[in-house]
């Protein structure tokens, strides 16, 4: 089969970019979308042109590296799927496709379809963890966790940090990403001790990175390759409101003798 691609080409962070049209011949429906781009790139190299740069790594839908817009939908038309697992059987022969990088101020384009998602790391660094040093852990089964809570936490923890939620959001909000981590830890007893601090700091960091605000469109949930639920954003809001209203400053430590 054959595809017509319009791909965003941009040399580096500073340069302006533009859509460039390519035709890919001789691809078949069993190929993954990225394998089709591999074919295009081999062809571009043969013609002495710069291959299209795109992030990818595991190619099995779990590392979260890959992702771009296909015809205006993050990760393309198939639900619950990253582009690396999207196969060409979901497209028609001769179809015209527009590929664009994630667009958000917090995700500057580095080259072609590659964006800088380090803002996500900084959101996690702001509080997306349990403060436990190596070696300080109690016996694992000393802390029972209700199965349904553990399952819900796992649902949220499945986030792969690909950024599709931000890309799809009309407001470029990172609420689903942030909420997934806040939810994961808020649902577990292990996360209880830092619950308030976590919600306050992560929400503040999300905002400092210049992501937009959630206005409950639900686009993020629809494109999330891991099916992270909008319910998590409600939980984040709840956690934040609770923390903002009830948070107390910790006592200052005084020196020992």
């Amino acid at each position: 089969m054959k595809l017509i691609l319009h791909i965003w080409r941009q040399k580096d962070r500073q340069s302006p970019g533009k859509m460039v049209r390519y035709e890919v011949q001789n691809v078949n429906e069993h190929m993954s979308f990225l394998e089709m781009l591999d074919v295009l790139n081999e062809d571009l190299i043969a013609r002495n042109q710069d291959p299209v740069a795109f992030d990818h790594d595991c190619r099995e839908g779990i590392c979260g590296s890959c992702g771009f817009m296909i015809n205006g939908v993050a990760h393309g038309p198939q639900r619950g799927t990253t582009v690396c697992q999207l196969h060409l059987r979901h497209f028609k022969d001769g179809q015209e496709l527009w590929l664009e990088p994630w667009r958000a101020r917090a995700f500057p384009v580095l080259k072609d379809l590659i964006v800088d998602r380090s803002a996500f790391d900084r959101i996690i660094a702001a509080g997306g963890y349990v403060s436990i040093n190596t070696g300080g852990a109690p016996e694992a089964n000393s802390l029972p966790v209700e199965k349904t809570k553990a399952d819900l936490a796992m649902d949220a923890a499945q986030c792969i940090g690909c950024g599709a939620c931000v890309a799809a959001c009309p407001n470029a909000s990172a609420s689903l990403f942030t909420a997934a981590k806040i939810s994961h830890l808020a649902l577990l007893p292990q996360g209880e001790a830092e619950r308030e601090r976590r919600a306050l700091n992560m929400v503040a960091q999300m905002q400092a990175e210049l992501f937009g605000a959630c206005t409950n469109h639900g686009e993020c949930e629809a494109v999330c390759p891991k099916g992270i639920k909008l319910e998590n954003i409600a939980r984040m809001n709840r956690e934040f409101v609770q923390a903002a209203c009830l948070h107390r400053e910790p006592a200052r430590e005084t020196g020992g003798a």
Binding site: I132, P138, M154, H184, L185, L188, Q190
Partner: peptide, 22 residues
């Protein structure tokens, strides 16, 4: 054995039985 303790304490959502244990 220490690894499991450490990871559980970090909040890794391991599968659980209905009784709440791993």
């Amino acid at each position: 054995v220490n690894i499991i303790d450490q990871c559980v304490a970090q909040g890794v959502p391991f599968a659980r039985e209905y009784g709440g244990l791993l």
